[in-house]
């Protein structure tokens, strides 16, 4: 049985998809402190206050139709001053996660970007630009997309801002000393964290 989906690709009937988000902003009284201070508000299609209002009303579709939460740069300015003590930056994060989990097409680019970024970090403990951007381009499955960035890439390379680097990976061997697979240096660490998080 195929599940019905909305235009955005949100499964219909999942009314409590937003519940965790609603829980976080229910006490919002629309004072506007967050919107007045948001550094990225100029670029947002909805101000943070609008977003919380929509969350209170359960307007899932509209929320995920907006790119506001992906534009949050997590400066925590709003959280710092919210008179209701709401964890607003966290809520933005929760929306990003929900959008990624639901695989919403509109946010594919953004969630892939986040994904590519963190995967690189998992490997090296830091960003390696070339690998990160390659992962991102590959994930979009659009061969023409990277072309648009060629001149920028070359410029950066000329100035030594980025350089071609081969992936540095740690070989994992089996009992006989044969290489089974390669993994990033920090993969283990992240696996451990995941384990611990799952436990708690």
């Amino acid at each position: 049985m195929t599940r019905k989906q909305t235009d955005l690709g949100i499964p219909v009937g999942e009314s409590d998809l937003l519940e965790s988000v609603q829980e976080k902003v229910r006490a919002c009284m629309q004072c506007g402190t967050c919107s007045g201070s948001c550094a990225n508000a100029f670029a947002m299609d909805l101000t943070p206050r609008h977003l919380w209002r929509l969350a209170q009303l359960g307007e899932t579709e509209e929320i995920f139709n907006s790119k506001t939460f992906y534009l949050c740069s997590a400066c925590y300015y709003c959280t710092l001053r919210c008179p209701r003590g709401l964890k607003l930056t966290e809520t933005m994060g929760a929306l990003k996660r929900l959008a990624a989990d639901q695989g919403i097409k509109k946010h594919k680019q953004s969630s892939n970007f986040y994904d590519a970024f963190i995967k690189t970090v998992e490997r090296y403990g830091r960003v390696r630009e070339i690998e990160f951007i390659n992962r991102y381009f590959f994930s979009l499955k659009d061969p023409f997309l990277p072309l648009g960035f060629t001149s920028l890439g070359l410029k950066l390379m000329r100035k030594g801002k980025i350089s071609l680097q081969l992936p540095i990976l740690v070989p994992i061997k089996d009992d006989k000393g044969k290489v089974k697979y390669f993994e990033g240096r920090f993969d283990k660490l992240f696996r451990k964290v995941e384990e611990l998080e799952a436990r708690s």
Binding site: G32, T33, S35, G36, F42, L46, T47, C78, R81
Partner: peptide
């Protein structure tokens, strides 16, 4: 009808204070 987030200077060090706020419609 708006709660102001914080007060800043104009950067000119003339004592004037700059207030940024969003009105009810969301305009900054």
């Amino acid at each position: 009808r708006s709660r102001v987030h914080s007060v800043e200077t104009t950067g000119k060090d003339d004592g004037t204070l700059r207030v940024a706020y969003a009105d009810t419609t969301g305009t900054k």
